[in-house]
């Protein structure tokens, strides 16, 4: 399976996302922000970092890049899209996911090994997990507080679209401890923690993050067999 990883100017964890794809058994494909072409990839990862410096508002400029028009169109067709950290912010700015990410409530950047509960195993990016499973992946951001209005939060909860929730204390003030969410169809997932930094023993806290990438690869195999 060919999984595209977008590099915006200011992307930082794009190489790490490509490594995670490779370790999960996929073929990473580097996509360039200025190139309005997904080169036929089967899924897309929007990586962490500070796209375009995040100077206006995190993800606000990236959303208008040429490659994003293709990602948005693809996501609406059902293409699996994962947004990690800054990628999650880009997905919210693109309205592929609801809500927004704001400055951490304690006003500081935070880097720590974060315990999460996988609330939903029914997205294309979490099917290899069991619902309710606890995992540990790094969290590292300054603007990770997930906010949305009450109705949206209720709808996300009601439709089972809260995908990851923080455990062991809320690290950034996210409403209802939400760490990651999905769109209605379950092909677009965004989360603040960094699963691509938990894919190799010795380089981060374990390998719990690998499952997101194996999930999407397995989903593709299932749909290929199904077709």
């Amino acid at each position: 399976m060919r999984i595209g990883v977008v590099t915006f100017p200011g992307s930082l964890d794009d190489g790490d996302a490509r490594r995670a794809v490779r370790l999960a058994g996929g073929e990473p494909v580097a996509l360039w922000h200025a190139d309005a072409d997904l080169h036929g990839v089967d899924a897309v990862v929007l990586p962490g970092g500070f796209s375009y410096g995040d100077y206006l508002r995190c993800g606000a400029i990236a959303r208008f890049s040429p490659v994003m028009s293709e990602v948005i169109a693809g996501a609406q067709r059902g293409l699996p899209v994962l947004g990690i950290c800054n990628g999650f912010q880009v997905l919210c700015e693109s309205h592929l996911l609801p809500g927004a990410l704001v400055r951490n409530d304690h006003q500081k950047f935070v880097c720590k090994d974060q315990r999460l509960r996988v609330e939903s195993a029914s997205t294309l990016w979490t099917s290899a997990f069991e619902a309710g499973q606890e995992i540990v992946v790094p969290l590292k951001n300054g603007e990770g507080g997930f906010v949305a209005d009450e109705d949206t939060l209720d709808r996300l909860e009601g439709e089972g679209r809260v995908v990851f929730r923080y455990l062991g204390g809320n690290p950034n003030g996210s409403l209802r401890d939400i760490a990651g969410i999905a769109n209605e169809r379950g092909n677009v997932v965004g989360l603040m923690p960094h699963p691509e930094h938990a894919v190799e023993v010795g380089y981060g806290p374990g390998t719990d993050g690998l499952e997101l990438f194996t999930s999407v690869i397995a989903s593709a195999l299932v749909s290929a067999v199904g077709a």
């Binding site: 930082l12 190489g15 950047f109 880097c111 790094p138 960094h194 691509e196 894919v199 380089y203 981060g204």
Partner: peptide, 27 residues
């Protein structure tokens, strides 16, 4: 140190509070 990203680039294998920082150069 919790305000510093120690994970980016995916090669960090020791960092504070360990005695030395260790990064992989060749994967």
């Amino acid at each position: 140190t919790d305000q510093y990203d120690r994970y980016v680039l995916g090669n960090t294998t020791l960092a504070t509070p360990d005695d030395a920082g260790v990064v992989r150069v060749d994967e």
